[in-house]
Amino acid sequence: MTTRVNPIPDGYKSAMPYLSVAGAAAAIAFYKEAFGAEETLRLEEPSGKVAHAEMRIGTASFSLADEYPEMNIRGPKSIGGTGVIIQVYVEDVDALFKRAEAAGATVKRAPTDEFYGDRSGTLEDPFGHVWMFQSHKEDVSPEEMKRRFAAFFTK
């Protein structure tokens, strides 16, 4: 008899970011210090290059690895930026921003109370990845959100 394996492993979401980083070991250390991330797995080549690592910030999981230019896998610093923002909900966005800025992150947009009910801000890590951290502060109905959205553009 064959045992059925869950196609989405326990503890994983069906979608999660996979970051390419120039200097993955340094990035892992930064994410731990700046974001309070927990490293759950690291696979290193004999040379020390990180082939695959997995991390968690609260309940948000992400993977990362060093760049592999020979396979056209490059991080944002190598390609001139990124069009992707990694969005993560945290308990206290203001505390996280203080911690991240002290660790070397660049604040792009300081945490602000938003019309959709979250306190949200954006920062860039030293490796070129852009993160939006949010704390949910208010439940807003779709109708109220549409009203607030329209009012936002009439200021």
Score class of each variant (00 low, 15 high):
residue 3 T to S: 15
residue 1 M to E: 14
residue 145 M to P: 11
residue 36 G to Y: 03
residue 112 T to G: 03
residue 122 T to P: 00
residue 127 F to D: 10
residue 24 A to D: 12
residue 103 A to V: 05
residue 85 I to M: 06
residue 144 E to C: 06
residue 13 K to Y: 10
residue 106 T to E: 13
residue 14 S to I: 08
residue 90 V to D: 08
residue 64 L to Y: 04
residue 105 A to P: 11
residue 22 A to W: 00
residue 78 S to I: 01
residue 42 R to M: 03
residue 126 P to Q: 02
residue 136 H to T: 13
residue 6 N to V: 07
residue 70 E to R: 06
residue 33 E to L: 07
residue 13 K to E: 15
residue 53 A to G: 09
residue 8 I to Q: 10
residue 112 T to Q: 13
residue 30 F to T: 07
residue 127 F to W: 04
residue 9 P to L: 01
residue 7 P to Q: 05
residue 5 V to R: 09
residue 118 D to F: 01
residue 138 E to C: 07
residue 54 E to G: 12
residue 136 H to M: 03
residue 32 K to L: 01
residue 131 W to V: 07
residue 116 Y to S: 09
residue 65 A to K: 04
residue 151 A to L: 00
residue 20 S to I: 11
residue 9 P to D: 07
residue 32 K to G: 14
residue 129 H to E: 06
residue 145 M to S: 15
residue 59 T to P: 03
residue 101 E to T: 13
residue 84 V to I: 13
residue 9 P to V: 01
residue 88 V to C: 02
residue 119 R to S: 10
residue 129 H to T: 06
residue 86 I to F: 05
residue 55 M to I: 06
residue 143 E to C: 02
residue 61 S to C: 11
residue 22 A to L: 08
residue 4 R to N: 14
residue 28 I to P: 12
residue 68 Y to E: 11
residue 121 G to A: 06
residue 61 S to A: 14
residue 154 T to Q: 11
residue 110 A to R: 05
residue 41 L to T: 14
residue 33 E to H: 07
residue 117 G to H: 04
residue 131 W to Q: 08
residue 58 G to M: 03
residue 152 F to K: 06
residue 40 T to Q: 13
residue 62 F to D: 13
residue 63 S to N: 12
residue 105 A to F: 01
residue 147 R to P: 08
residue 79 I to E: 13
residue 68 Y to C: 06
residue 29 A to W: 02
residue 59 T to F: 04
residue 25 A to G: 13
residue 130 V to C: 09
residue 38 E to R: 15
residue 13 K to R: 15
